[in-house]
Every structure is written in structure tokens, then in C-alpha cells.
Computed example of a mutant assay.
Amino acid sequence: MNYSELIERLSDQTGKSKKETKELLSDAISVLSDQLSSGTGVSIPDLGTFQTKVNEEKKVYNPHYDAYMIVPPKRVVNFSPASGLKEEVKFLSTDED
């Protein structure tokens, strides 16, 4: 599913226009991004929790240059799915209907 398909499905389910739905989704993503960039986690019931963590500086080997390099620390987003979502996805059929 791509972004436009998501907008279309949400629009159909909520009864709102595609333009309103796109603005609402854009605002939700903006709020989520703001919270994560400030270091605050976001928990969405029945979906999961988004949190940030810092990957520490590490030393890695680069075979192209035959040398070790230092990778600087960086902040990344982690997602932990809710247990209900895990169970729902776990038991889905893998057969194509």
C-alpha cells in the first residue's frame, strides 16, 4: 500500500474528503515527528510505541579501504508493536487469495 492508497482507504472509512484526510494524516505525522525529535516517545493503543534511542559511536571495518572507521553516534527511531498487533499479524495466512 502506498501513500495515496492509504489516503483513499482512510477517506472511505471516515467519510471525509481525500483533501481533509491527507491534511489530517499530514498533521498527525508532523506531531509524531515533533515528539520523537524532542526525545519523547509516542504510544498508540492497538498499534505500538515509537521511541528514539541513541546508537553509540562504534568502530567498523571497511573492506574497500582495508581500514577501520569510526561511525559517529546517531539517534534512531524504534518501534515496538502492541501485543494485539503482533498476534494478529502472527496468525495471518501466507496463502495468496
Rank of each mutant, 00 (worst) to 15 (best):
S17W: 06
P73G: 01
I29L: 15
Q13Y: 06
N62C: 05
K86A: 03
K16Y: 12
N78M: 12
T14A: 11
G48Q: 03
K86Y: 04
K90Q: 09
H64G: 09
T49L: 06
L24T: 14
E8T: 12
I70N: 07
S30D: 15
K18I: 07
K90W: 00
R75W: 00
E23D: 14
D97F: 11
S33W: 00
E56Y: 02
E87Y: 00
G39E: 05
M1C: 06
S43G: 04
V31I: 15
S83M: 06
F50I: 07
E56L: 10
L25A: 10
G15I: 10
N78F: 09
T14I: 08
T52A: 08
A67S: 14
E88H: 04
P81N: 07
R75S: 06
V31N: 05
E5P: 01
D27R: 11
F91V: 05
D12W: 01
K19R: 13
A82W: 02
A28K: 00
K74A: 03
T52S: 07
K58D: 03
N62M: 07
L32C: 06
E5H: 04
L36P: 08
S33A: 13
S93V: 04
A82F: 04
T49P: 05
K53I: 11
L6K: 01
D46P: 01
L10I: 12
S33K: 14
D97E: 15
L36S: 07
K58L: 05
I44Q: 00
G39W: 04
I7E: 07
F50W: 10
E57P: 01
K59P: 00
R75G: 00
Y3V: 10
K90S: 09
E57L: 04
N62Y: 05
Y65V: 14
G15V: 09
A82R: 01
S43V: 02
F50V: 06
D97V: 12
R75E: 08
A67Q: 15
G15Q: 08
Q51F: 01
I70T: 15
L47E: 04
E20A: 13
S30R: 12
K53T: 15
D66H: 14
M1D: 04
D46S: 12
N62A: 09
Q35K: 14
F50L: 08
V89H: 00
S17E: 08
V60S: 09
K53S: 14
L85M: 12
S30K: 14
